[in-house]
Design a protein around this nucleic acid. Structure first.
Lengths: 149, 149
DNA sequence: TTACCTGCAAAGGGTTTGCACTTTG
DNA sequence: CAAAGTGCAAACCCTTTGCAGGTAA
C-alpha cells in the first residue's frame, strides 16, 4: 500500500482525494516498522516536507484509520500509536522498564473470538490484545525485582 | 472490598490514609457494575457528597489503580473507563452501535500469555484484551449492514 | 502533631476545529 | 469549477498540579 496507485484507489473508493500530504504520510507509515505516535510521525513527515502541518497529519491518520489503512494502539496506557495495517494479525507486548515492543501472533486469540461470537451472537470487527511487563533483558538486569536494589 | 475495614487495611499497607472521599469513591465503584468514565463516576460521587472535587476523584482513582483496587480500560478507543477489580479475570466486548459492554472470560488468553512468556522470556504483568463490533441485538436490527438501508 | 489529603483554579498535553485559501478531479 | 483538503491558530477535553487550608492517625 505504498504505491501511489493503490492509495489513490483506496481513497477514491470513499470519495476522498489523493494529495501530496497524504502520500507523504502513507510513505512514512510504510517505512516505519516501529509504532510511532503522532509526534514521531510528524518529525518524519516534516523531514520529507516541512510544509505539512500537524493538523493535516491528524486528519490524515483519522482518515486512514477510517478506511482501514492504519490501526491505532494505546500502548502502555499512553497516548495513541499508529501502524500501517499488515496482512497477518498481530499483537503487542510492551516492556514497562525499557519501552521495547515485541510483536507476536496468538492463534488462541482468534479461538477466543470465535467462542465469544458463538456464545453471544456478536460479530467482532475489532480486536485489541495488549500485554505489558518486563522483557527478558530487563529481567536479567533485575529490573523486575525493585526490592533487590 | 466495599467495607471500611479492608479498604483501610489496603491503604495503610501503602502508607495511605482512609478518608471520607476515598470511601465514597470506593462505594461508587463497588456499586457500579458498568464501566464508568471519570465523569460518570463524578456524578455519582457528587450525588453522595457534593463537596468532593473532580481532582480528588482523579487522585483517588490513580491511587486505587496503583494499589490494585481498580483497573482502567480504554473502551472503544475512547478515554479511560474504570472498574473495581474482581476475583476472576475478564475481558470486554463493546458494541459500536449501541455501546453495550459484554464481559467475558477467555482461558485462551491465558494460554497465549503463557506461550509468549515461554517463547520470549518475558514476564507479563498486565493484559488487555478488548473486542468491538456489533452485539446480537444490533445485528438483528441490521445495524451491521448499512448498505441494506 | 505532622504527614498526608483536599478543593480550587490554573496549567498541561494530545487532539480537534473554524476559517480563508489552495488544490484535486 | 465545485468540492475537498490545507495551514494556522485558537479551542477542546480529559487529566494533572501548585498551593494554602484541612484532617487522619
Amino acid at each position: 500500500m505504498v504505491d501511489r496507485k493503490s492509495l489513490h484507489a483506496a481513497l477514491r473508493g470513499s470519495g476522498l482525494r489523493l494529495t501530496r500530504q497524504r502520500l507523504v504520510v502513507m510513505q512514512v507509515l510504510a517505512e516505519s516498522q516501529e509504532h510511532l505516535d503522532a509526534n514521531a510521525l510528524f518529525v518524519r513527515v516534516q523531514a520529507i516536507d516541512p510544509s505539512i502541518s500537524l493538523s493535516t497529519l491528524y486528519r490524515t491518520l483519522s482518515i486512514f484509520k477510517e478506511i482501514g489503512l492504519v490501526e491505532a494502539h494505546q500502548l502502555g496506557e499512553e497516548h495513541a500509536h499508529f501502524e500501517a495495517v499488515q496482512d497477518n494479525p498481530h499483537y503487542h507486548f510492551m516492556c514497562t522498564a525499557c519501552g521495547r515492543v515485541i510483536e507476536f501472533d496468538a492463534p488462541q486469540v482468534r479461538e477466543a473470538i470465535r467462542d465469544l461470537s458463538r456464545r453471544e451472537g456478536v460479530k467482532v470487527t475489532t480486536s485489541h490484545f495488549m500485554l505489558a511487563g518486563w522483557c527478558a533483558d530487563c529481567r536479567r538486569q533485575g529490573k523486575d525485582r525493585p526490592d533487590a536494589n
